[in-house]
Design a protein around this nucleic acid. Structure first.
Lengths: 261, 261
DNA sequence: CCTTGACTCTCCCAGCGCGGGAGACTCGAC
DNA sequence: GTCGAGTCTCCCGCGCTGGGAGAGTCAAGG
């Protein structure tokens, strides 16, 4: 019989951990002195502890590990837990790899520009949403405000607006005519009897913020597109804008729908 | 000015998070009503929050994020933090991939054998350690006990033994003669004036436990080697054994030094 | 037998990044 | 004025330990 310290030293595990595993019933001490509370372990328990540590190192929680350590785990339950773990791990790996790519893109950017970026680009996925839509050819980007007010006027006053936005189906870079779809986003649950409700599908976007009326918005667009390309995406749809609060005068979030290139 | 709820809705962030960021000084509310405690936010803060969320999504802690959000982070500090993050992320990815490979190997094993494995194999890295050594040709595996006792006898009694072990430089599978190096491991700090102290280098091993004197130890060896090969390693050195507590009669940990194949 | 130093016990606090909930206010529309 | 929705603060919880306090215990040497 070994005292906890010796057992811990043999197993290269902290005493704290052993006590914790004992409390949780994961690896109960073989014997506990009633009067002193001293825990005593058996060398044979090294094998159990070894199993425990293996499961832990696979990423199982202590609760799951306890189940796996149970006297006889039916094979199908074991397999289920393993496949669940595989799924979770695969997801984690994908996430961490994406993060790593993001960080590397940022390092490259800092080394190129010698400082923090002027515009912060985020790649993220957008939930599908519900909106009232009004699409027109315009001569100026400012016309979107008028379109938004028009939509709003058609809406019962008590219906709350979640967000104002627009999709620029064609921008002035491709000709004199601008093709603008003004969007008034509504809450998912409030679905008024308005006729032209549009379901805006979710997607992955490159997103960047700028102040409404800023002069160098082109820089923001370029930053977003460059970052997206650097991360292996390509632009897969018309640019969108989301306005914070009021239809004009505030922060604008620009989004470029993406798909993996 | 927006109340916290509206700001949270715009940013698709929980109110709890905003309050938390406020408390930590990460994203202080633009104004707080003295009498009611209500927090008020500015749409321009959406950009800051955006940056905050980006740093978070790169895996920075809130504390690091606060530093990164500071008014003017010097470029070299930014780069340092990014490269540190890259290192950490790369390590994480490597770990998670190794775990995933482990889990997949186990799934394959369960599907092949239809149940939990007889022997649990762990791949782990071993710290370098200090030992007294005695190497001999033996006729039987049991001779190691005698060797260990010999070493122990040469040692001052008050020097504590950390562990007993052996390296089998040649096993009986390769001929009648066994080449055994008995090892008495000592604590790093207690370094007596004994002459033949050996530094056992650290390495990665496939490790498996069995009871001393078990009949099917071959199965354990095979399990360890198969698992190691399945994970892309190959055996790179002579088999080692570590004895728990007494030199004989107890748990034996068998280790196969590995290198990536 | 007593001392001494190493060991062990239990209990509490800390950290991360929030979420949940209680109980008390406050806002804004009708 | 009233009501419901919003907001406040405070506390607990999660998972897995690590650190430390304060008390008790073991084993070896004098």
């Amino acid at each position: 019989m070994l005292k906890i310290g010796e057992f811990a030293r043999l197993a290269k595990v902290s005493i704290k951990q052993l006590r914790h595993y004992d409390e949780l019933g994961l690896l109960p001490a073989r014997a506990v002195d009633r009067s002193t509370g001293y825990r005593y372990y058996d060398v044979a328990q090294l094998a159990t502890l070894n199993r425990l540590l293996i499961y832990r190192s696979l990423g199982f929680s202590l609760k799951e590990t306890r189940r796996l350590l149970g006297v006889d785990t039916p094979p199908n339950e074991l397999r289920e837990m393993l496949t669940a773990r595989r799924t979770a791990l695969a997801a984690r790996v994908a996430i961490e790899r994406a993060r790593l790519a993001e960080v590397e893109a940022r390092i490259a950017q800092v080394e190129r520009d010698g400082g923090a970026p002027r515009y912060e680009v985020a790649i993220r996925s957008i939930e599908p949403s519900l909106a009232m839509s009004l699409r027109r050819r315009c001569d100026s980007y400012d016309d979107v405000g008028e379109l938004l007010r028009t939509i709003r006027a058609h809406l019962p006053r008590r219906v709350p607006v979640a967000r104002y936005g627009a999709i620029w189906h064609r921008c002035s870079t491709r000709g004199p005519q601008i093709d603008c779809e003004a969007l008034v986003f509504l809450d998912r649950n409030t679905r008024p009897a308005g006729t032209d409700l549009v379901e805006i599908p979710g997607c992955t976007v490159a997103s960047v913020f700028h102040e409404d009326g800023a002069s160098d918005t082109r820089l923001a667009y370029r930053a977003a597109i460059e970052r997206a390309t650097a991360l292996g995406y390509r632009v897969a749809g018309p640019m969108r804008e989301l306005y914070a609060g009021q239809p004009a005068g505030g922060m604008v979030e620009v989004q470029f729908p993406l798909c993996s290139a």
